Amino acid sequence: MMGEFDAIRPYADAEVPAVLQRLIADAGFLDILTRFRFPRLAGPLGWLLKPLIAMRLRTEFARIDSVAALQTKIETYVDRTIERATDGVTYSGLEQLRPGKAYLFLANHRDIVMDPAFVNYAIYHAGLRTPRIAIGDNLLQRPFVSDLMRLNKSFIVHRSLSGRREKLAAYQLLSAYINHSIREEGESIWIAQAEGRAKDGDDRTDSAILKMFHMSRRDEPFAEAVKSLNLIPVSISYEYDPCDQAKARELYTRATTGSYTKAPGEDDQSIALGITGYKGRVHIHFGAPLEASPEDAKQLAAEIDRQILGNYRLFPAHHLAYEQYAGRDPELQVPTAAQLFSAEEIARAEAEWQKRLAACPEEQRPYLVLQYANPVRNRYRVKAGLPL
């Protein structure tokens, strides 16, 4: 039955033991784990540590025979990472979700791994079934990364195709899979509102993604097809972005040279920094289910933006950046940080914000400011009913 989706779907329970064995035997995977666990010793003693880590993994994952059991096992590691790299995670809006109902979670996108991880974290701790996660094939350069992600309920979005016909076929398959997952199998889906991260902090829904949801159901009106997917806009807000310096550098390079070429291994670095880097506080808001869907993708994108931006939690650093932002609109009524936060909170944010500015080369600073100022501008424009 699922044959047509084999190339992109997550692994099924029956496949888990064999894939785990394959991972434990993968030299690249063991190398990364060794460097992560023992950064200083990995070079000189890697030959000794790798077999020990493989042995430990074999023992630890010996009885894992389903995706749910694997997620329960991994959860303790995720919780530990979150404790180390954040000042706490809060979430709101989960009370609107009904157990046993499948949803399409459409979220803003800042971090490759942690965006869906935080959404999963919130849903898992609420006692609901975690969603399947859309991940671009550009991040799956090595077989073990693909195995790891597909074990954790990820499915593949083919982005690196160049031919128009191939792209169309890939989108058609993706659309069919998302609809099949939600409507037939009762399994929720998480997908970002646009391809790639919003590096300038300007979160916008790409209407092409919304059209893709409808592609495999052309026999139904657009509004009806979207309504059946139970779409929920999700706002993910980080107090600090561990990758903000790298994003500022990329934005500056694009603005001054017209293009930006990623260095080999740059995605791997972004993933590692995104997971382990300091984020301050994190808030995830689950918006209201879209009961009545507009008739076309542009209107629907505007409604999703209204929810994602309107429910985005702003922290003191966002306001401090907005106060420095050269492009702010004098007509827009935006309260100052001092009007919204305690003196203690502002003092803490000031210290961290100044540290980040100091670490950023002067010519790139406007692009660092922009990342934190844009959510403020967008939220208050939405509040005032102004166009974005």
Rank of each mutant, 00 (worst) to 15 (best):
Y278H: 13
T276N: 09
T257W: 06
P289R: 06
V282T: 09
S259R: 14
R249L: 11
Q269D: 13
P289C: 07
R249Q: 14
P242T: 00
D244M: 02
A301K: 11
L290F: 12
T253P: 01
D268H: 13
D244V: 03
A263R: 12
G280S: 09
C243H: 01
L251G: 05
Y252W: 14
R254W: 10
P242D: 00
R249A: 14
S270R: 06
A272S: 12
R281S: 11
T257V: 08
L290P: 03
K279I: 00
A288H: 14
A301F: 11
P242H: 00
S259G: 12
T256C: 06
E250S: 02
A263E: 14
D244W: 02
S270L: 09
I284A: 05
T257R: 08
P294I: 11
I271E: 04
L300M: 15
H285E: 10
G277S: 11
T253N: 03
Y278I: 05
R249W: 10
Y260I: 04
T276E: 09
T256E: 10
D267E: 07
Y278K: 13
L290K: 06
A248L: 03
S293E: 12
K298E: 15
Q299H: 15
L251M: 15
Y278G: 01
I271G: 02
I271L: 07
D244E: 13
D244H: 04
G277W: 04
I284T: 10
A301G: 10
P264N: 06
C243T: 12
L273H: 13
K298A: 15
R249T: 14
G274Y: 01
Q245K: 12
V282A: 08
G265A: 06
R249M: 11
P242Y: 00
A297T: 14
I284D: 05
G265N: 06
Q269A: 14
T261N: 07
S270A: 13
A248C: 03
D296V: 11
R281Y: 04
I284G: 03
P264D: 05
E295N: 13
D268Q: 12
K279L: 00
S293F: 15
G265E: 06
E291D: 14
E250C: 01
P294L: 08
T253A: 10
G258S: 10
A248F: 04
K247V: 01
G280C: 07
L290C: 07
P264G: 04
G274S: 05
Q245W: 11
D296E: 15
Q245G: 12
A292F: 09
P289Y: 09
I271K: 02
E266H: 01
Q299G: 14
P264Q: 05
L273S: 13
T261A: 13
L300S: 13
T257M: 04
A263D: 10
P242C: 00
Q269R: 15
S259T: 15
A292N: 14
H283P: 02
P294C: 09
Q299Y: 07
L251V: 10
T261S: 11
A255W: 10
I275N: 03
K262P: 03
R254T: 12
T276F: 06
A263I: 01
Y260K: 01
L251P: 04
G258E: 06
S270E: 11
Y278R: 13
A248N: 03
T276P: 00
S270Q: 13
E266F: 00
E291C: 05
Y252R: 09
